[in-house]
Nucleic acid binder design. Sequence first.
DNA 1: TCCTTGACGGAGA
DNA 2: ATCTCCGCCAAGG
Length: 106
Amino acid sequence: MPASEVNDRIQAIWFVVSRIPKGKVSSYGQIARMAGLPGLSRYVGYALRQLPEETEIPWFRVLNSQGRISFPPGSPSFLRQQSQLILDGVEVRQGRVNLKLFGWNP
DNA sequence: TCCTTGACGGAGA
DNA sequence: ATCTCCGCCAAGG
């Protein structure tokens, strides 16, 4: 596995995530498909984990297929993601977002 | 290599 | 709606 390809996949994923508009959310599976990597939803999580803390890429707009935050409730990461979404104007209740209302449909 | 680990997803109960 | 269980698949040990 060439490290260059690994980077290409991560770049592709970061790019798609960077396109999610403010006020909207996506899912790991949707990002994987849009990045040309169908079936690699888990890989999206891996790619986002590689982001530096200061990143401008809106990683917090990526939720699981049920619209739930994929971090343990109450954990630092969970709280950061939740507050970022609120800042976007996204309604979050019990770590959950209504995809019918806030889902990103390009 | 083999085994474990996940920021996942879908089906079933 | 909630909870398991299982399939998936690249990484890292």
